[in-house]
Amino acid sequence: MKYEEMEVEDNMSTVMQFVLLGFPDLPDLQGILFGVFSIIYIIILTGNSLIIILTRLDPALHKPMYFFLANFSFLEICHVSITLPRILVNLWIQDRSISVLYCAAQMCFFVIFRATECFLLVVMAYDRCVAVCDPLHYPLVMTAKVCLQLAVGSWVSEIPVQIRQMCWISLPFCHLNEVNHFFCDIPPILKLACGDTFAHELSVYAVTLLFAAVPFWLILVSYSQIISTTLRLPTARGQAKAFSTCSSHLLVVVLFFGSPAITYSRPKSSHSAGTDKLFSLFYIIVTPMFNPMIYSLQKKDVITALRKLLLKK
């Protein structure tokens, strides 16, 4: 086992370097995985960048909904770029070592971007709630200033807590430094820690509750009001139109919260490396790849803007 360690006073050791095992059960498929992940990364960058470009260039998309969507697409690019390039490097050069500092930074920024996305999805749900439940006052409520304040609030509100949450990366790891994962995620790192980790697991659950469960509950409250208002509309056509404005966001919410909720809500003893990797692949690769497609196919404004851009080119 490869590791560097520094002796401390209590005869335990603080690991100075981790080894990301990646996909040890698939030694003959490393090249294929590199190709597949490279294509997926290009699709993610292209799709989300296109959303950002369209919302900036087309005046028809200068609306609060698309302003928040552009922010969300930028966050998707950020959080994927924290993990996927490192995975590609590991697959290409087969050097899986990663310093504790790099690992802590990767974990910290990954969680910050994910938490920001959670709050931004709440803001997007609130935007849809105002649009459906109070359409006459929508332009007065969702002004440019309010939209900017909501976006900035989503970006900065969780940073201090998340940075504090990552400080336990300095825990002693009892000579164990092989992380059975393809990036530095909380469950596999915490699994290597020595001694009683109950307090640290509890802090993970508390942060998960604050930055995942609470936003999800707020989204449910918004959609309960949307559904209640939609059902009171006099015509089926009006109901269908109201629901169509929210369907893409609702689908993204289900995909976004599904697999991470399963991964982070289970106790450490029940974590399976294979299962964790499967769920992680879903929420760090699959979801960001499909989100631009979901919004593009559901929103006629986006399709129209894309056609106009292609015709100009």
Rank of each mutant, 00 (worst) to 15 (best):
M1A: 05
E5A: 12
E7K: 15
D10W: 00
T14M: 07
F23E: 06
D25H: 15
Q30N: 09
Q30D: 01
L33S: 13
L33R: 15
G35D: 07
I40E: 04
I44E: 00
L45S: 04
T55M: 12
T55I: 10
R56M: 09
D58P: 03
P59R: 15
P59T: 15
P59W: 15
A60Y: 11
K63D: 11
P64E: 03
F67W: 09
F72T: 01
L75G: 00
E76Q: 09
V80S: 13
T83K: 04
L84R: 09
R86C: 07
R86M: 09
I87C: 11
S97D: 06
I98C: 06
I98F: 08
S99Q: 10
S99H: 12
V100N: 05
C103T: 04
A104Y: 05
Q106P: 02
A115E: 02
A115L: 00
A115S: 10
L120N: 04
L121E: 03
L121R: 02
V123I: 04
Y126H: 02
R128D: 01
R128V: 01
C129Q: 00
V130A: 07
V132S: 05
H137L: 08
Y138T: 13
P139G: 09
M142N: 10
T143E: 06
K145C: 00
L150G: 02
V152N: 00
E158P: 11
E158D: 07
Q162F: 10
Q162G: 08
I163T: 05
I163A: 10
I163W: 06
I163D: 03
R164P: 01
C167S: 11
S170F: 15
C174M: 11
L176S: 09
N177C: 08
E178S: 10
D185Q: 13
I186F: 15
P187N: 06
F198A: 10
F198E: 06
H200A: 10
Y205N: 06
Y205E: 02
T208D: 08
L210N: 04
A213H: 04
P215H: 02
W217E: 00
L218Y: 03
L220H: 08
S222N: 08
Y223F: 14
S228A: 13
T229I: 07
R232V: 04
L233Q: 13
P234N: 03
A236G: 09
G238A: 12
Q239P: 10
A240F: 11
K241F: 07
S244H: 13
T245D: 04
L250F: 15
V252A: 04
V253L: 02
V254I: 14
V254L: 06
L255T: 04
L255N: 08
L255H: 14
F256I: 01
F257V: 06
F257L: 05
K268S: 12
S269Y: 14
H271G: 07
K277Q: 07
F279W: 14
L281V: 09
F282S: 12
I284W: 14
I285Y: 08
V286S: 05
M289Q: 08
P292N: 05
K299V: 01
V302S: 02
T304G: 00
A305N: 12
A305G: 10
K313M: 07
